[in-house]
Design a protein around this nucleic acid. Sequence first.
DNA 1: CGGGATATTGATTGATTTCAATGTGAGTGG
DNA 2: CCACTCACATTGAAATCAATCAATATCCCG
Lengths: 228, 228
Amino acid sequence: MLMHKSGDIATTKPVVPIPSGMPEVDALADAFAVMGAVMRFEHNSEIFGEGEPADYFYRVVKGAVRTYKLLNDGRRQISAFHMAGDIFGLEAGAEHRFTADAIADTTVLVIKRSTLMALAARDSDIASGLWTQATGDLLRAQDHMLLLGRKNAHERVASFLLEMAERSAGLQSVELPMSRQDIADYLGLTIETVSRTLTLLESEAAIELPTSRRILLRDPAALRRLNA
Amino acid sequence: MLMHKSGDIATTKPVVPIPSGMPEVDALADAFAVMGAVMRFEHNSEIFGEGEPADYFYRVVKGAVRTYKLLNDGRRQISAFHMAGDIFGLEAGAEHRFTADAIADTTVLVIKRSTLMALAARDSDIASGLWTQATGDLLRAQDHMLLLGRKNAHERVASFLLEMAERSAGLQSVELPMSRQDIADYLGLTIETVSRTLTLLESEAAIELPTSRRILLRDPAALRRLNA
DNA sequence: CGGGATATTGATTGATTTCAATGTGAGTGG
DNA sequence: CCACTCACATTGAAATCAATCAATATCCCG
């Protein structure tokens, strides 16, 4: 069932060195490194779709992934962006509850759900890694609910920029892997509002926009103040 | 309970056939029943606060609980309502990431986090129960993000009513345990908008409001259509 | 019956969306 | 190298949905 649109490539599993040196031992990451198959997805291609069997778990090696849900009329809510090192695709049920696709050309490690679950039953480090992952996802989802339910556009964009800055480890300059439409669908706004708000933040000297994908945080404290 | 479709995933142990139509064995619920301490909280009292040590897990026996986050200026986002049978307070980290309080006079079972984690390390049914709980919470959080990010007031209220109806098992009549303010803070709206929208739904003959806490779903299909 | 909290309804404002151009930048082919 | 294109982003003007401000109305409980 590894029939994906554009992926489905190198499936003999060479052990790929894990990028992003994690400080602590991560049994889950190890499992991916040892047992995972490498797959590549090109920009905008679907990794899995809502409703498909959730037979695999994924770990981003390179690139970026968005996971989202759609309403029947096409409105989209991106629930998370997944960058290098992130795990996604975990499900309780048999089916994926959201769609995942590659924002940029992306490499992922894939591991069979059944394999990982079997491992978890024997290895409590794996089980606890899964637990940490799931509750961490939940934590982020709860923060995001607060943003979507209660923050205004200004605050949403500020929160987003700070989140991206933290995740790229460099607090000075951020290279965004996603389009304005993706940002809008993550923040529950329109592209126009995102664009206007970025311009506003620039006029407030909080940020600078050398290009549309690169953002310099000139005054992170100002952004943090907006973070409420 | 890792519910899979027919010939799905091979789990480590043989799957015990479950009597049809009967509730399945819930190791987590059992653990609470056997090892949990009973605690009572009266209407509007706090069960735990954001930032406090997360040393206990909870299961609602009677009553209802809201879990939420606050912004510094008091804006509140309720992330979930927990009714009889529901488990809440699970955390990956050492501290609670949200506040929980009793919506009505409420009885809960409390179990020490360390106790449950130790149990989980030995009993894979417990571990899998925790897993199911966490991913189930995540699933609901994702659906709620879609609601908060992309649905209009009409759709939010309709979704809410359907959710409550499902959870009270009776699709005809729903007794709401929470106030309009709670509903508003769950749906990311104001009390006025919730109130107006309910009135509107009544005028559309989709629902009836005998009292402010009791709602009759006259035309669930109409609500489902709004659910997008 | 009175009083306080909760809910509904009304009038108005305002933030964000929608509709509509215009601008920009990367890639292509002449 | 430049003109062209196409996708993406920004900016402007108008419309709209929900919030806010402001009265009532209703319920619950003494």
